[in-house]
Write a protein that binds this DNA or RNA. Structure first.
Lengths: 154, 154
DNA sequence: CTAGAAGTTGAAGTAAGCTTCAAGTCAAGT
DNA sequence: ACTTGACTTGAAGCTTACTTCAACTTCTAG
């Protein structure tokens, strides 16, 4: 086996993704692998860089669809270069900024509520569908699971 | 029909939750309804307060399990009073604080990466499983869907 | 050559939080 | 009585990002 191609186990170890995730990403069109004569996946080293990009994007909160769009939006559909990365990471930073702003607004709304006990459907900033909910869209706000620690009982 | 009990449609309208969500919450043990002679749900007004609490908690990012725990942890399993609410919302605020901190750290890590083009599995803060990933746990970080706006192609 | 590790596939399962559906029941106005 | 419209139920479906499983096949060391 040529030394410049890696097995799925090697890629899994070096990228930190499970082998099953790598197969899943391949089916999802995010990464690509050559095949050995016997049908095994053989990865070029550049896939590690692509996976690093994917991991970073996941941390920022992009869905796989969005990641595919960003990778596909690159010239020649290539793995991001230094310049691509500079532009993209600046974009991500803006997104994080707005998420931070939104959470901060929510926290401050909560703070102004402490002690008022209102929880009024007409007035409370934390619960009013016409306030917070209308600003962030209908339905629930899903916060980062991995950033959350379970609350203990009061 | 007594005027102090509300139908599911009325509760849905006033709370902003879909009727299907109300039935779901009931099965999940979050809310309760009396029944009419014919078997229809009849809600006491206090359920609106409870639903306001649930909505606020969902905005903060609590799971339904956590919400049930918080509601169940109240004395007499009652709907939160002003004092309960003061304690709980302070707790939520701490949680929002730590989420904001985590996102800020991620953003700053990204900022320090801009232009370096590293995306190195060994060094980059945004992609390294041994850094960000190890700090926040294995696997992906799921950021708030409702706080996110889709990225446009670069 | 052969045991056993590593890899393959498609299909199904998981989690959360609901929504939708089918089929039937109840309530209210005329 | 009859027609709507509101409501009931359990079961299945949806979404995202994977994991797990069963049943094989391939590769590698001895």
């Amino acid at each position: 086996m040529p030394t410049d191609l890696l097995t799925i186990t090697q890629i899994a170890e070096r990228s930190g993704f499970a082998a099953s995730a790598l197969r899943f990403y391949e089916r999802a069109g995010l990464i690509h692998a050559e095949r050995s004569p016997g049908g095994r996946r053989r990865y070029a080293r550049t896939v590690l860089r692509r996976l690093a990009f994917i991991r970073a994007a996941r941390h920022v909160g992009l869905t796989l669809d969005e990641i595919r769009a960003q990778l596909g939006g690159l010239p020649e559909n290539r793995t991001p270069t230094r310049e691509d990365w500079a532009a993209i990471s600046a974009q991500w930073r803006e997104r994080l900024d707005s998420e931070i702003d939104a959470l901060t607004a929510l926290r401050d709304g909560l703070t102004s509520c402490i002690g008022c006990g209102c929880l009024s459907l007409e007035r409370c900033k934390a619960s009013n569908p016409g306030d917070v909910a209308r600003r962030y869209g209908p339905g629930a706000v899903y916060l980062p699971r991995r950033l959350r620690e379970p609350l203990s009982h009061p």
